[in-house]
Design a binder for these strands. Structure first.
Lengths: 205, 205
DNA sequence: GACTGAATAGTCAGAGTCAACTAATCTGAG
DNA sequence: CTCAGATTAGTTGACTCTGACTATTCAGTC
């Protein structure tokens, strides 16, 4: 529907286009910038795919090879500049990403959909462990945000978002543990029954 | 660290193993079950990769070819059964997924990290649009959950989780819009300035 | 002035993913 | 009876991704 397929699908390409709006760069410089600004927290980044993505962008006409210079006896450094089509793609893509949430597949959703395959007491133990880890992640991000005094909060908004999601997940996990263990309305016994019997989702009696 | 690399990485394999604990099945039956139970909401599923994943599982020794039968003149249907190694893998993988959250890359995180590249008023318009869409998604899931009366809530827990995340995101977006537009502490003007000037993340004065 | 480790710069094979295609069989309308 | 369309069942090929590998240069140090 809304999401026409992009010529270059990898989100890393979006980051590349964004850095190139500032000025032409060669691949390694992009790599360094991405690492320095810790964009690897937001974009799936590995050195290899960067070159791939730049090639794809070039083929699609979103960036253009500007010059091939050689400094000392180092390998050639090809400098790329963003094109008008590239600027258009950047804006359009960003608009789509911000304006239209799309269905994603977090690992925990998959895990939850099959969690009945574990015995209930083990599930509870693991959920408690998850909760601790989530708390640690939250603390790490907080530290990171606090450590970046002087940076305008606009440039940390993605970390605030992560924190919001983490808080929601922590709360959810706590509620879920409650539902399993609460002796009043507890699911524990029924769960154990499911577990002993068939693992079918019970759409027939 | 904790996450030793799985022989079969695709989460679809986890769903397959789970269905095979109930009994041996042939690929197409798995495909039908996955669709019927709407597991395509939790697992990235397309017909083609299913056959791939089953081959990988067979190579890794997690499932074994049980029989190759032929009914009428239809193509062969190879029936697969889970092995002991497969059952172990299923439990171990599930434990890891539940107990250890891992760093993921939601599209919106990427979008937020670059959102300063849009003019602030456009960003606000898009965020409002997102908020509406998120509300629609939430309503859809609610309807789906309500429509599934009779199914034990344990089997809908992944949808409850989605709702929790959606609510958190809706709240976050509202706060963010507030920060941009609030004339008291509003970021709007500064944003516009950033936008006019360099798009550098401002790590130096 | 030669050695070591880190940084620079890029390539590549293997594995994985996805959409499109083939091809048979079943179902029901006319 | 026969034809269209849905369903069943699986294959293929183009594209993408990732981790590992190569090779040069620079900074420090003994």
């Amino acid at each position: 529907m809304a999401a026409a397929k992009r010529k270059v699908g990898n989100l890393l390409a979006l980051a590349v286009l964004s850095y190139l709006t500032v000025g032409p760069k060669h691949p390694y410089e992009l790599s360094r910038l991405l690492r320095e600004h810790q964009d690897d927290r937001s974009f799936r980044f590995n050195h290899g795919s960067l070159y791939m993505v730049i090639q794809q962008l070039a083929k699609a006409g979103f960036v253009a090879e500007q010059a091939t210079m050689r400094e000392g006896q180092r390998p050639e450094r090809t400098v790329y500049a963003i094109t008008d089509a590239g600027r258009a793609e950047l804006r359009d893509w960003l608009r789509e990403l911000v304006g239209s949430p799309d269905h994603e597949y977090p690992h925990f959703v998959a895990a939850l959909s099959l969690i009945a395959a574990l015995p209930p007491d083990e599930a509870v133990a693991l959920l408690r462990q998850r909760s601790l880890r989530l708390g640690e992640q939250r603390a790490e991000i907080s530290a990171l945000v606090d450590g970046a005094a002087g940076v305008h909060p606009l440039f940390l908004v993605e970390e605030e978002y992560r924190i919001a999601l983490l808080d929601a997940e922590i709360a959810f996990v706590a509620r879920f543990i409650g539902q399993i263990t609460d002796p009043e309305t507890g699911w524990g016994p029924q769960w154990a029954a499911f577990h002993a019997g068939s693992l079918d989702k019970g759409d027939e009696s």
